[in-house]
């Protein structure tokens, strides 16, 4: 079998802050080139921890206790900081969650969009400027010259997220980690941004890990999905298959819990307590 593009095998991590409470329990997943995999789960399920581990930015309170993250044949967890930092931002990039705080309020868009290009690709000021213009056009920003000169506070939330998407794709990374990129946006903008991310991913042939808690978003954008609960993989597979014929009772309950356009009057069903009890029993936790 050939080496996959990205594979996480048996990744386990504990929190040093909570007396070694496990955060990830033997998580495995894989991603092919150009594939979009959704990481879904409730708060604390470990989806963000996996994203951070991929980017090498785990908080110092989180300790990896086992497993490997292999990206194009290299184990990211055993790389030296210098090698890791060469990959991050260049081969692997991030679309952050909150466009309000992810752009530096004190710097113009141009300098934030171009300093990766200039530092990592050695582009001249002019070349970086031209590339930044192209990128902004690609994310459907209408007046790119003006936006380049603008400060973040002069842009709307949707515009800022477009800028951040442009920045994430600026260096032609092979893998983009999207950390709930639409959570902080209002619903009408969410759809556009999702479509944009999907479009960018397709044109660039980028692999993507898409972290979300929204199964509706998964249905729109992900080829495959991994469902997590309390740091453990509950169910994984092609999106259509998992959503149409969920195997695990938790997945079924989650799908039933979501609001539906076709049955707006139906009450929102919480996941039954019995299912949480079952999950805990499976994992051997109280």
């Amino acid at each position: 079998m050939t080496e996959p593009f990205l594979s996480i095998t048996g990744l386990s991590a504990v929190s040093d802050r909570e007396n070694g409470a496990p955060i990830l329990r033997d998580v495995s997943l894989r991603l092919e080139r150009g594939e979009v995999r959704g990481l879904v789960g409730e708060s604390g399920a470990g989806k963000s921890t996996i994203a951070k581990a991929l980017l090498g930015i785990l908080p110092r309170t989180v300790r990896v206790t086992g497993g490997a993250i292999r990206f194009e044949g290299q184990d990211l967890l055993t790389l030296k900081p210098k090698q890791l930092s060469d990959i991050m931002g260049s081969e692997i990039s991030l679309i952050p969650q909150d466009p309000q705080t992810a752009l530096n309020p004190g710097r113009r868009v141009e300098s934030q969009l171009t300093d990766g290009l200039r530092m990592r690709r050695g582009l001249s000021r002019q070349a970086a400027h031209d590339k930044a213009l192209k990128l902004l056009e690609e994310v459907h920003i209408r007046d790119p010259e003006r936006v380049l000169k603008a400060y973040p506070h002069e842009l709307s939330g949707g515009m800022r997220q477009r800028v951040l998407i442009a920045a994430a794709f600026a260096l032609e990374p092979k893998l983009v980690v999207a950390d709930e990129p639409t959570t902080a946006l209002d619903v009408t903008v969410q759809k556009q941004i999702l479509r944009l991310i999907r479009g960018m991913q397709k044109t660039h042939g980028t692999g993507m890990i898409f972290v979300t808690h929204d199964l509706g978003v998964v249905a729109q954008i992900c080829d495959t999905v991994t469902l997590l609960y309390a740091g453990k993989v509950i169910e994984a597979g092609p999106t259509a298959q998992v959503l149409a014929t969920p195997k695990h009772a938790y997945t079924k309950a989650l799908l039933a819990a979501g609001p539906r356009y076709d049955r707006p009057t139906a009450g929102l069903e919480p996941v039954p307590q019995a299912i949480f009890d079952q999950l805990r029993a499976e994992m051997g936790i109280m």
Partner: peptide, 13 residues
């Protein structure tokens, strides 16, 4: 501790 620092750090600063 702001997110923009994290992003800039990922750029290799």
């Amino acid at each position: 501790v702001q997110d923009y620092i994290l992003l800039a750090k990922l750029k290799g600063k």
